[in-house]
Simulated assay, not measured.
Amino acid sequence: METYIQQIPNLSLVASCKDAFEVMQVLAAQNVDVLLDINMPKLSGLSLLKTLQMKPSVILTTAYPEYALEGFELSVTDYLLKPFSLERFIQAVQKVETNTKVINQGIIINDKEPISGVFVKSDKQIIKINFEAIEYVEAYGNYIKIFTPQMVLTPQTLSEFITKLPHQFMRIHKSYVVDFEKIKMIEGNLIHLQHDVKLPIGKSFKKDVLERVQLG
C-alpha cells in the first residue's frame, strides 16, 4: 500500500500505524483521510470506526469479503479486497475525491455554498458561532473553550471541532487552534493575539506555523 501511495502525486503518507491506538493518536494530532486495515491487533479497524464521533474519509482493506456489508454500514468510502491492484486502488482514491472536496489540511465539506459559522451545544442551548468571531479555541478535557467576545464551553474534542473550521484556522499546539488572520506577532515559541493573549506553539507544530507565515 505504501508503494501505491508513493505512485500517486496527490497522496502523501502521513503515518504507518501498527495498531488502532496509533491511528487514534494520528487522528488526534491532525486531519487526515484514512486507509484502514480491518485486521489489526488489540482493536479491529471496524471497531475503531465505531469509536469515532467524527469519521474521516475511510478506505477499508481486508482479505475477508464477509466484512464488506458492515463496512459500508459505517459509511466507508470504499472497500478493497486483498490482493488489489494499483488500478483498483486508484479507483478508491478517486471515490474519495469525487464524493467530497478536500480543502487544505484535510478539512472536508460539501462544496455548495460558503458556511459562515457552526452550531454548538452549550449548557442547555444550541448556539451559532460565526467563524469570524472566533479568536482561538482551547482544549479542556472532553470539552473545548471557544473564545469569541465571550467564551463558550461545549462538549467536544479539539480534533473534532477543527474539522468544522475553514482554512484560516490552524492548530498551533495540542491544546490550541487559532485564527491565523488574528495573529499580531510571533515571538519565539509564543503567538500574540488581540487583547494581550499569548499562546504557546507546540514543538511538533512549529514547522507548520513557520511555513504558514512563509518563514520556514
Rank of each mutant, 00 (worst) to 15 (best):
E160L: 08
S57V: 05
Q194L: 11
Q53P: 10
M151R: 03
L210W: 02
K101S: 08
Y140P: 03
V93W: 11
C17F: 06
L190R: 12
L11W: 01
K55Y: 06
V178Y: 10
Q150Y: 13
E132I: 14
F21T: 06
M151W: 00
Y4H: 10
S159R: 03
V96Q: 05
L13R: 01
A20K: 04
D111L: 13
D33M: 03
Q150I: 13
Y79V: 09
F161S: 01
E97P: 04
M151N: 08
L210S: 08
S116H: 12
V118M: 11
M151L: 12
F84K: 00
A133L: 11
Q168E: 15
S47W: 09
V213Y: 08
P56G: 14
F161Q: 09
K124P: 00
L74F: 07
S204E: 08
Y143H: 11
D111A: 08
I201F: 10
Q150V: 05
E187P: 02
T100M: 05
Y176Q: 04
Y176I: 02
T62I: 02
Y140R: 03
L193T: 15
E181H: 15
Y79S: 05
M1S: 13
P56I: 02
E113N: 07
Q91L: 06
V23G: 02
F147E: 12
H195Y: 12
K174Q: 15
G106V: 12
Y136F: 13
F119L: 15
L210D: 14
T61Y: 03
L190M: 03
Q194A: 13
K128F: 06
T154N: 09
N142W: 05
N39D: 06
V34T: 00
I201V: 11
I162Y: 00
P149C: 11
N99Q: 05
I126Y: 15
M1A: 14
V58T: 12
I108Q: 08
Y79L: 02
I127P: 04
V102P: 03
A15W: 04
Y64A: 00
A20Q: 04
P41S: 07
L210Q: 13
T154E: 00
D78E: 10
A20F: 03
P65C: 03
I115E: 11
I134L: 12
D37W: 02
D37F: 00
K42V: 09
Q150S: 12
S44M: 03
S16Q: 05
Q53H: 11
L165Y: 09
D78G: 08
I8F: 01
I186R: 11
L210R: 11
V102S: 07
